[in-house]
Computed example of a mutant assay.
Amino acid sequence: MIRKEEVYRIGRIGKPHGVHGELQMQYSDDVFDRADAAYLVLDMEGILVPFFMDEYRFRSDEIVLMKFCDVDTAEQARQLTGSIVYFPCRLAEAAGGDSLSWAQIVGFTLQDARSGQVIGEIQSVDDTTANILFEVRTPSGTDLLVPASSELITDMDTTCRTIKAHIPEGLLEL
């Protein structure tokens, strides 16, 4: 059984493309193209299920046309529409070398490097602007935007899934 902590989110299945089971997949990380992986993991009503890739081709910087094994009709493809797509962490680590993609750090715990205080869990990374931000959910349930500048990050532990960063003074009081 595949557990949620063994994978990270890389995309979402869109609508079928054609009549032979091909799907559009919007992706945030093209690790499936860089890694030696035969499958992607789809969330099927809360159960993580591996789907073996038959072939794929890039349509744009955000869309790939994906064909899974044994998904041969538009109706079968339509049943997968809206599914969240995940990638195995262990395969990404083998393919990625020393650097992690922004998508891989979702779920990491953010800590203040000075005090050791847990700020919260990284829910997503907003890289749509020049200043990249971590979207963090605090233990009390509130959401914070924290700068994800490399100058502020002091340590990253992929085994413990933690990032230590210098949190700008006054940010937590906002």
Score class of each variant (00 low, 15 high):
55 E>R: 15
160 C>Y: 13
129 T>A: 11
84 I>L: 11
105 I>C: 03
15 K>E: 06
87 F>W: 03
137 R>C: 11
84 I>D: 12
62 E>W: 11
18 G>W: 06
57 R>S: 10
90 R>F: 01
119 I>K: 11
126 D>Y: 02
45 E>W: 06
28 S>W: 06
106 V>F: 04
174 L>P: 13
58 F>T: 03
18 G>D: 02
54 D>T: 05
60 S>A: 01
32 F>M: 09
59 R>I: 12
77 A>C: 03
52 F>V: 06
144 L>G: 11
75 E>A: 03
77 A>N: 00
23 L>G: 00
89 C>R: 08
69 C>I: 15
17 H>I: 12
128 T>Q: 15
74 A>C: 09
145 L>R: 13
87 F>A: 02
127 D>R: 15
135 E>S: 15
64 V>A: 14
121 E>Y: 01
52 F>A: 06
18 G>A: 03
106 V>W: 03
61 D>H: 06
44 M>L: 14
96 G>Y: 01
46 G>W: 10
80 L>E: 06
119 I>W: 11
76 Q>P: 00
9 R>C: 03
166 H>C: 12
20 H>Q: 08
47 I>G: 02
161 R>K: 12
138 T>M: 05
17 H>A: 11
42 L>M: 02
122 I>L: 07
161 R>A: 08
116 G>I: 10
159 T>N: 12
128 T>A: 13
110 L>H: 11
122 I>E: 07
23 L>Q: 00
2 I>L: 08
11 G>A: 05
111 Q>S: 07
116 G>M: 14
77 A>G: 04
121 E>C: 02
49 V>K: 00
